[in-house]
């Protein structure tokens, strides 16, 4: 589901009068999810990794939190309108002498395809892993970019 918003992420400064309302809406949504016990899929595809997508005039930006995943274990492919992200998260296993007290982190494979609203330029896609966050910069195709028209 794609829906447009006119403001940024919570706590980083209000960009529009509706920002706080939208933040509240998402908070209420999360509370409802918790009470009903069934995670709703509003804005969530239910496929790992969770992805945030944003855009400006030139590019789409895809971001995903992938702590502990190294760049070599990632496979990112771009075609006409879609970006696919696949990879594997590896967690070094401890030897037999260790005792686990807590085990919450998970390892495994993942793969996801994200469709973008418009055509992209697949040759110019750039991906970057910093501090466990994957950022994919996807330039929009030349024909879909907004063009400034001069009035004579």
């Amino acid at each position: 589901m794609i829906y447009r918003r006119v403001f940024g992420l919570p706590g980083w400064g209000v960009r529009s009068p509706f920002a706080e309302l939208e933040q509240l809406r998402r908070q209420i949504g999360r509370m409802v999810d918790e009470f009903s016990g069934t995670p709703s899929l509003s804005g969530r595809a239910g496929v790992f990794p969770a992805v945030n997508v944003s855009e400006n005039r030139e590019n789409y930006y895809l971001r995903a939190e992938l702590p502990g995943v190294v760049a070599a274990d990632l496979d990112i492919q771009a075609t006409g309108k879609t970006i696919s992200v696949a990879g594997e998260r590896k967690i070094a296993g401890a030897d037999e002498n260790t005792r686990y007290h807590r085990r919450e982190r998970e390892a495994g494979k993942f793969s996801r395809v994200i469709s973008l609203p418009d055509d992209i330029d697949p040759d110019q896609v750039k991906a970057n892993m910093t501090d466990g966050v994957l950022t994919v910069v996807v330039p929009k195709a030349e024909k879909t970019k907004p063009h400034q028209i001069t009035v004579k």
């Binding site: 829906y3 403001f7 998402r26 992805v51 945030n52 997508v53 944003s54 855009e55 609203p117 950022t135």
Partner: peptide, 18 residues
């Protein structure tokens, strides 16, 4: 720290940052 630059507009938000 926020990673988004100010001129970006959100399309899909699946996870929050905090």
């Amino acid at each position: 720290e926020p990673f988004e630059s100010p001129d970006e507009e959100d399309l899909i938000i699946e996870y929050e940052v905090g």
